[in-house]
């Protein structure tokens, strides 16, 4: 596969993984928790580096998952102690993120881990960092990691489909039926953390937020079916990656940045033109209604 094709595949996998998982958080009105976790995983990655002294995939995944779930836990704790939830999110993620950034500046230049990388990712280098097993080149590591995380996410969503749905729609009723609401909550937080860290290398900590939230919000404007919403969100993620890549090549700008901007483009399109919930259709319906009445 060519260099460009690998980048496209990586971007699409980021869009797909984040799109599907992030849509669940949009529905739970926890988008800003996704924002928080995608910042704080940086601390998990730096932490994993300090423990193992290398930038290996697996310790990074574990470190990020731990810090991600911890973020959710701290927010929950402050929330239940009476701090309003937006401020709770704000104070937790800025603290942990700041800690991560400060720790990075102690890492030194010899290691491929710096602040800019953490923010924007380096998708352009992905195709060269390949996985080799017994001399066989199996393609970029990032692709394998993203594929693996995507499968895990799909597995969990399939297994706990009805529990995720009910705890999202009506958590009180779910608790009444004896469904482990908190377990599902932290399971989702774990999935978000994994998706974030797998995408981290390619698009960076902050741009992954766009991939998590915007496709889900866009799909929310387009459909009224839960399952279709998840699938649509993943597809919009892929579409954004492809569009963003083309744009980045055309104007010679950051690939990850363009991909994130493309999610915004599709959101605006849905916001205006969505047949069900777009403002244009709403206006037309209003106009028809008033002309019928007169």
């Amino acid at each position: 596969m060519s260099y460009d094709a690998w980048i496209l595949l990586t971007g699409s996998l980021v869009g797909l993984t984040c799109g599907v998982t992030g849509a669940l958080l949009v529905l739970r009105k926890m988008s800003m928790l996704a924002d928080a976790i995608s910042h704080t995983v940086l601390l998990g990655i730096v932490g994993a580096f300090f423990v193992t002294q290398s930038l290996n995939g697996l310790p990074m995944l574990i470190g990020a998952a731990i810090v991600g779930v911890l973020t959710a836990f701290f927010v929950q704790m402050l929330d239940s102690s009476g701090v309003q939830s937006d401020a709770a999110i704000g104070v937790v993620f800025t603290s942990l993120f700041a800690l991560g950034v400060v720790l990075i500046s102690f890492v030194g230049d010899s290691v491929h881990l710096d602040v800019e990388h953490a923010l924007m990712g380096e998708i352009a280098f992905i195709p060269w960092d390949t996985l080799t097993v017994q001399g066989m080149n199996l393609g970029p590591k990032a692709v394998w990691m993203l594929g693996f995380v995507f499968l895990i996410n799909v597995l969990f969503i399939t297994l706990f489909y009805k529990e995720i749905k009910l705890t999202t729609f009506d958590p009180q009723f779910a608790a009444l039926l004896g469904i482990p609401v908190m377990f599902i909550h932290y399971l989702l937080m774990g999935m978000i953390s994994l998706s974030t860290v797998a995408s981290f290398d390619s698009v960076g900590a902050i741009l992954v937020v766009a991939m998590l939230i915007v496709p889900g919000a866009t799909a929310y404007l387009l459909t009224d079916r839960f399952l279709i919403l998840l699938i649509l969100s993943g597809l919009i993620g892929i579409l954004s990656a492809v569009t963003g890549f083309a744009f980045a090549v055309l104007f010679n700008v950051s690939i990850a940045g363009s991909m994130a901007c493309a999610t915004g483009l599709y959101f605006i399109l849905a916001f205006i033109f969505s047949p069900k919930h777009g403002i244009l259709m709403k206006q037309i319906r209003k106009y028809r209604l008033s002309s019928e009445q007169s």
């Binding site: 529905l27 009805k162 529990e163 749905k165 729609f169 779910a174 469904i179 079916r225 919403l229």
Partner: peptide, 30 residues
């Protein structure tokens, strides 16, 4: 039967689906 205002009615799901949720406790996890 909770108060209607306690859930978000914009949630993407159908009436039948909501009623089915009443059976989740009987069906069991997964």
């Amino acid at each position: 039967v909770p108060q209607r205002s306690e859930v978000d009615w914009d949630f993407p799901t159908s009436a039948l689906d909501v009623v089915l949720m009443g059976r989740y406790g009987h069906i069991g996890l997964i």
